[in-house]
Design a protein around this nucleic acid. Structure first.
Lengths: 227, 227
DNA sequence: CAGGCAATTTGATGTTCATCAAACTGCCTG
DNA sequence: CAGGCAGTTTGATGAACATCAAATTGCCTG
């Protein structure tokens, strides 16, 4: 793993994240100064469940799986993090140890924020505190949405939801380029890879065509009926 | 619905919640002053998905379901809130509208916190900001745990988990008194009521006996094997 | 371009759980 | 105590999804 200070391009990318958008001037600078950038190999562990929590992260590049393991060794993704996503910020006041595992999917670039440092900054600077609260709020809403979606929707509905959320238009044909392997999408939707594949098959009569990572949608309006 | 200012007993109860434990003196007083207590009928809506979010709540008495509805009218609980639970605090910086529904189960007493007021207090008082972050952090961890648990564990395992979490002891026999109807427990575990009932049946050979809300556990250690 | 590996798809099968219907239980009220 | 009602359990059935195995595709490297 390769570590370095923040470059200008990384800096401008970080400005777009939930964590730092909304910050300016000194508050922003203090947060940026507290971060370190890490280059990581594919499938390398960022942290493990039960380890002492000393940092949270922002994805600059690549993808990170957050997951839990069952006693029998089965594996369930809790969240798939994409570029600009912040993860494990819940450890800021959430207890001493990580409660889940984090592992890079491909090679990934992460901005690492020291928890102790950010706690101190949040204490001193109400703008930073507000940014952390915004991040936590948004993340909590998303996770509650995930619980509801898992409990309410079938696999094809969840896939349709995902596609529609990434559709720029309201009606007519569209195409969506998956930003990662179907493997990760399956984990994100709480499905086995086979189940994701079959969900796509189910959507074919509804005008959804799959060619690798490129998904063609015959009619967005029609797809909306599935949900 | 009946509204009134906080009484002394309600005050002392609020001190035990994640939101206010950790606060003292002036910070605590400001939060308490901002709250109003509401007495509510059973099955009354606290707020609905899509409504403008102007408050969050702490349960003083009774139970509140947080749930989402599918387009076809199906219903999925996202969380069951018990006395001392805080809910909808994610709306503090999470957007303008509630993203789920909240409805009382039995008659319930709620402390209502105005979002605008608490935003202002958090801005001015870093102790209050920290309390809100603690609340959000804990809640987010719990919700992520819920996603993992739904995806990883079967119904009997989730029931066993629930019972074990409420078991004071480590080994030998124990008994757990459910604090509410099985209906609510089912919702909490993401199950239909029938599925909960069958999960209890599955656990009978493992030494779990059900009589109304009283659950007898033959051997805690043995039950732990189920998980 | 050939070969090889990983990702994805497809098929077959079994488990888990939701759903509907009906029986049963407990509790409350008249 | 009878009746009624909500909550719970049980039975029967089907839908949804995981799992295992095998075929296929896609992509990368030599």
């Amino acid at each position: 793993m390769n570590k370095h200070a923040i470059t200008d391009s990384e800096r401008s990318q970080l400005l777009k994240t939930t964590l730092l958008t909304g910050l300016q001037g000194r508050s922003l600078q203090r947060m940026l100064d507290s971060a370190i950038v890490e280059e990581r190999e594919g499938r390398s562990s960022v942290f493990r469940q039960g380890e002492n929590a000393d940092a949270f992260y922002c994805v600059l590049n690549g993808y990170v799986r957050l997951f839990r393991l069952s006693r029998e060794g089965r594996h369930a993704d809790v969240r798939i993090c994409q570029p600009n996503d912040v993860f494990a910020e819940c450890m800021i006041y959430g207890g001493d140890d990580y409660t889940f595992n984090a592992q890079t999917a491909d090679t990934a670039t992460l901005a690492r924020f020291d928890l102790g440092t950010v706690r101190r900054l949040a204490e001193e600077d109400s703008n930073i505190a507000r940014s952390v609260m915004t991040c936590l709020s948004q993340h909590l809403i998303d996770t509650m949405h995930c619980v509801g979606s898992d409990r309410l929707n079938t696999a094809p509905q969840r896939v349709a939801d995902y596609l529609l959320e990434r559709c720029p238009i309201d009606r007519g044909p569209a195409s969506v380029q998956l930003p990662f392997q179907k493997n990760l999408l399956a984990g994100m939707l709480g499905l086995a890879p086979e189940a994701l594949s079959r969900a796509f098959s189910t959507l074919r009569p509804r005008g959804v065509t799959v060619r690798g990572r490129m998904i063609q949608i015959g009619d967005v309006q029609a797809l909306r009926e599935v949900v």
